[in-house]
């Protein structure tokens, strides 16, 4: 488990305040328990005029119990996350990430976190990356210029 505690120095005086973050880094995201997320990170990049505003996430329950799914954190100024409330044992459900209007022109690297109802209250964080290039130029703008050379 990785833990980090950045300190915040203010003019308040006294001891510095700190926030704490922690995570379990998974090396094999295709074999997690009690769920497997596919894809384990979402790429919403857009390199052509064709808009990419939503992506689907599949959550497969590999345990033998029904699991409730609760969204615990997401950056609402970038996207919304729609997850089903539960997934039955052995089944797969789909969730969806949808960009908000103000984020369509932006490149970013954010994430969202959901929690399961298993005994450990397992949490999973799904990174969401978006790189935006050439939104108005359309596909082929660059290559068409090279063809005549």
């Amino acid at each position: 488990m990785i833990k980090k505690s950045p300190k915040i120095q203010t003019n308040e005086g006294g001891t510095d305040k700190m926030v704490r973050i922690s995570t379990h880094v998974i090396e094999r995201p295709d074999s997690t328990y009690p769920v497997i997320n596919t894809p384990y990170k979402l790429d919403m990049s857009q390199f052509t005029g064709k808009q990419v505003t939503r992506k689907t996430l599949r959550i497969t329950n590999v345990s033998d119990e029904k699991l409730d799914i609760k969204l615990v954190d997401y950056p609402s100024d970038y996207f919304t996350v729609d997850l089903p409330g539960s997934v039955k044992a052995g089944e797969t459900v789909e969730g969806e990430v949808v960009l908000v209007e103000n984020a369509i022109q932006k490149s970013f690297e954010k994430s969202f976190t959901f929690e399961l109802s298993d005994e450990q209250h397992s949490r999973f964080t799904i990174p969401v990356k978006r790189t935006v290039r050439n939104i108005t130029g359309g596909i082929g703008t660059k290559t068409s210029g090279n063809k005549g050379k």
């Binding site: 305040k17 700190m18 926030v19 704490r20 973050i21 922690s22 995570t23 379990h24 880094v25 998974i26 995201p29 997690t32 384990y40 990170k41 954190d73 994430s111 976190t113 929690e115 397992s122 949490r123 999973f124 964080t125 990174p127």
Partner: peptide, 9 residues
């Protein structure tokens, strides 16, 4: 003041 990301790739 604390946040647990849980499992992250």
């Amino acid at each position: 003041s604390s946040f647990d990301f849980g499992y992250a790739p």
